Amino acid sequence: MEWLTGPFEVTFVQRALWGGVLVSLICALAGTWVVLRGMAFLGDAMSHGMLPGVALASLLGGNLLAGAAASAAAMALGVGALGRSPRLSQDTGIGLLFVGMLSLGVIVVSRSQSFAVDLTGFLFGDVLAVRESDLVQLLIALGIALAVSVLGHRPFVALAFDERKAHTLGLRPRLAHLALLGLLTLAIVASFHIVGTLLVFGLLIAPPATALPWARRIPMIMAGAACAGVSATFLGLLLSWHLGTAAGATIAAVAVLQFLLSTLAAGIRDRRTRLPEPTAPRP
Rank of each mutant, 00 (worst) to 15 (best):
L128Q: 12
L128D: 08
A129H: 08
V130Q: 09
V130L: 14
R131E: 14
E132W: 13
E132Y: 12
E132S: 15
E132F: 13
S133K: 14
D134Y: 01
D134Q: 00
D134W: 01
V136R: 13
L138K: 08
L139M: 15
L139I: 15
A141Y: 05
L142I: 06
L142S: 07
L142P: 04
G143H: 12
G143R: 12
A145L: 10
L146Q: 10
L146I: 10
V148T: 10
V150Y: 12
V150W: 14
V150N: 08
V150S: 09
L151W: 12
L151Q: 11
H153P: 07
H153S: 12
H153G: 09
P155Y: 06
P155R: 04
V157T: 13
A158Y: 03
A158P: 07
A158E: 12
A158H: 04
L159T: 05
L159A: 10
A160P: 08
A160I: 10
F161I: 10
E163Q: 13
R164W: 09
R164Y: 10
R164A: 15
A166G: 15
A166Y: 04
A166F: 07
T168S: 14
T168K: 11
T168W: 10
L169S: 06
G170V: 05
R172I: 07
P173N: 06
R174I: 07
L175W: 13
L175G: 09
L175Y: 11
L175A: 14
A176P: 05
A176V: 05
H177F: 15
A179S: 13
A179M: 15
A179W: 13
L180F: 08
L181C: 11
L181P: 06
G182A: 10
G182T: 10
L184A: 07
L184Y: 05
T185R: 04
T185A: 15
L186M: 07
L186Q: 04
L186D: 02
L186V: 05
A187M: 06
I188K: 04
V189C: 01
S191R: 02
S191E: 03
F192V: 05
F192P: 00
F192T: 02
H193P: 00
H193T: 05
H193Y: 05
I194M: 12
V195Q: 01
V195F: 01
T197W: 06
L198E: 12
L198S: 11
L199R: 00
L199G: 00
L199T: 01
V200L: 02
F201M: 09
F201T: 04
G202C: 15
G202E: 11
G202Q: 13
L203K: 00
L203A: 02
L203R: 00
L203E: 02
L204Y: 02
I205S: 04
I205W: 00
I205Q: 04
I205G: 02
A206H: 03
P207L: 03
P208L: 01
A209R: 00
A209L: 03
A209E: 00
A209S: 07
A209M: 03
A211K: 02
L212G: 06
L212F: 12
P213L: 07
P213M: 08
W214Q: 08
A215Y: 04
A215H: 08
R217M: 09
R217W: 11
I218K: 05
P219I: 09
P219L: 11
P219Q: 09
M220Q: 15
M220C: 13
M220L: 15
I221P: 01
I221D: 01
I221Y: 03
I221R: 01
A223N: 06
A223E: 06
A226E: 03
G229F: 02
G229I: 01
V230S: 04
S231Q: 06
S231R: 03
